[in-house]
């Protein structure tokens, strides 16, 4: 379970996140939308242990992650979390299979045969087969994104954080990737996804980040409908 308590983050004196309280149950499929620059990536990276919050706490399975010593936080990122970035994130010097196996190397052991087999099955699942020894630059953008998803799953994380995983992809690929995450979620993994693909909003619990606050999607639509303008009381 993920619990966020009165989480705030400012950049240069400007609120990006303001006193956010949030709960994500195990096995949930959560979608976060919001305007560009609204702070979605910031929220995700604070939850994922990549950006220190200004104030507030993040609990993952009852561990206050920003109170953990750095090595333990690193272990948590490595074992429990899978992060898929908004931008291409494969390591250019490593070929596809090594990219997928990289988190295993960071867990302090050398990948064994089983790891390789698992990596192979993940690549099959994401639909990039027969390209194990390609370098990332030899893949298309969508393929790179899918390899990054496979990599995020190699340590069997209980939580997947996906930041606009379908960002600049065509509709058909977008659909495939969405289905992929639904499948991942079906296996019991909690998925938190930032997306603008509103067509999928219905497929999970949806939230909107607006004015530095996180609110349920429907509600925010109503709110923006009733209160004209940005004025606050």
């Amino acid at each position: 379970m993920i619990r966020v308590e009165t989480l705030s983050k400012q950049y240069k004196g400007v609120d990006v996140l303001n006193r956010i309280n949030w709960r994500v149950e195990d096995g949930a499929f959560v979608i976060v939308t919001g305007r560009s620059g609204g702070g979605k990536t910031t929220l995700l990276s604070i939850v994922g242990g990549l950006t220190r919050p200004g104030e507030g706490k993040v609990f993952i399975d009852d561990a206050d992650i920003w109170q953990l010593p750095e090595p333990e936080l690193a272990t948590l990122r490595n074992r429990k979390l899978g992060f898929v970035f908004q931008f291409p994130s494969l390591i250019p010097t490593l070929h596809v299979l090594d990219n997928v196996l990289l988190p295993i190397a960071f867990s302090g052991r050398n990948p064994n045969v089983e790891d390789r087999e698992f990596a192979g099955s993940l690549l099959e699942m994401v639909g990039v087969t027969g390209k194990d020894d390609y370098s990332p630059s030899q893949l298309s953008g969508g393929q790179q994104r899918r390899v990054a998803i496979a990599r995020a799953m190699i340590n069997r994380p209980s939580i997947m954080l996906a930041d606009e995983p379908t960002g600049d992809l065509d509709e058909k690929t977008e659909e495939e990737i969405m289905r992929l995450f639904q499948r991942i979620n079906g296996q019991g993994t909690t998925v938190i996804m930032v997306t603008h693909a509103l067509g999928y909003v219905k497929s999970g619990l949806a939230y909107t980040l607006k004015n530095s606050r996180l609110m349920p999607y429907e509600e925010s639509e109503v709110a923006s409908g009733s209160c004209a303008g940005e004025g606050e009381l």
């Binding site: 994922g48 990549l50 750095e70 090595p71 690193a74 272990t75 948590l76 990122r77 490595n78 074992r79 992060f83 970035f85 994130s89 390591i91 250019p92 990289l102 988190p103 960071f106 867990s107 990599r151 340590n155």
Partner: peptide, 15 residues
């Protein structure tokens, strides 16, 4: 960026 990604994937600061 790459080293940041390493850490996002769970590489410790010391590594």
């Amino acid at each position: 960026r790459e080293l940041g990604l390493f850490r996002a994937m769970g590489a410790g600061r010391s590594l």
